[in-house]
């Protein structure tokens, strides 16, 4: 067969696949938003959910989502960033380093439902936390850790060695170099990475079903970390598969649209300033 003709056919096929993939993604987004956005109202966002009647809101779930997210970041950022700094700045080539890398990689591959059962076993049952905001946040922070480690290590490695040399040659200690030169320079990358982690944690459900529970506190907002803390993603699953309210579909669609909106916003709004920050650091804006 004529190789030129084949080539032209193949190019057509590639375009078709590329456009097809984009079309699937676009359809997906449109489908979620068009079905869900009409259900989103101020009342929906702030009202408490109903058990049996229609017209319930998702106020407590919205609060719990961000509360648990914030706590989980609070727990995981120090350890994740610390381990990332160690890997990038201190680790020598030896057995222990290999072990840390392998362990982090393994942790990154753990299915979230296994984290969920681990949290159920350790935090909820053994440590008597029950289905609680704190149990959920602690377990969720385990999911965050490996990504934080990797992002920190990668962004620090991207900082040119000349900065390290310059700082050490001035008599700075290693920690001073890390705190005053390396971390500020790596900040845009770190912010992007933490955004990524936050987006994933916000949409997580399998972990939280077994640790934060599928019900909400009678009070809203309830800052008590021992209160049970159903989140948006869990609520979406719960109303759709076990819920008794007649408007379960609408609530699920509204919640789905809200989750996607939040992910969109995280991707756009926080990624843009970090790009801006990067430009500013490079001195091009001056």
């Amino acid at each position: 067969m004529n190789s030129k003709l084949t080539n032209r056919l193949a190019t057509g096929m590639f375009w078709l696949v590329g456009l097809g993939i984009l079309a699937i993604l676009a359809w997906f987004l449109w489908h979620i938003l068009s079905a869900g956005l009409p259900h989103i109202s101020w009342k929906f966002l702030t009202k408490k959910p109903e058990e049996m009647l229609s017209g319930g809101g998702i106020g407590p779930q919205l609060f719990n989502s961000f509360y648990i997210l914030a706590l989980s970041l609070l727990f995981s950022i120090p350890f994740g960033v610390g381990a990332g700094i160690w890997l990038s700045e201190y680790a020598k080539k030896n057995r222990f380093t290999d072990l840390v890398r392998l362990a982090t990689e393994m942790l990154a591959s753990v299915p979230s439902i296994v984290f969920g059962l681990f949290g159920l076993l350790v935090f909820v049952t053994t440590l008597h936390m029950g289905y609680s905001i704190i149990g959920g946040a602690l377990t969720l922070s385990l999911l965050n850790l490996p990504v934080l480690v990797r992002v920190t290590e990668e962004t620090l490695r991207a900082v040119p060695d000349s900065y390290r040399e310059a700082s050490l040659a001035l008599g700075a200690t290693k920690w001073q170099t890390i705190r005053k030169v390396l971390l500020p320079t790596a900040l845009p990358g770190l912010v992007t990475g933490i955004t990524l982690v936050a987006g994933r944690a916000l949409g997580e459900s399998a972990i939280l079903i077994f640790t934060a529970g599928v019900s909400v506190s009678r009070f809203a907002p309830d800052f008590n970390v021992m209160a049970s803390g159903e989140t948006l993603a869990v609520h979406l699953w719960y109303v759709r598969s076990e819920g008794l309210v007649p408007d379960a579909t609408q609530i699920a669609e509204g919640t789905a649209a809200l989750l996607v909106l939040v992910v969109l916003i995280l991707n756009l709004v926080i990624a843009l300033p970090s790009r801006f920050l990067q430009r500013k650091m490079a001195g091009k804006s001056s």
Partner: peptide, 26 residues
């Protein structure tokens, strides 16, 4: 400087321990 060095090693060791405790407990 010394203290932070130990904190970083500690974080790395802690992160590594998690996967093994998950395997162990579960």
């Amino acid at each position: 400087d010394r203290m932070m060095h130990w904190l970083f090693i500690g974080s790395a060791a802690f992160v590594s321990l998690i996967i093994f405790s998950i395997i162990l407990f579960v």
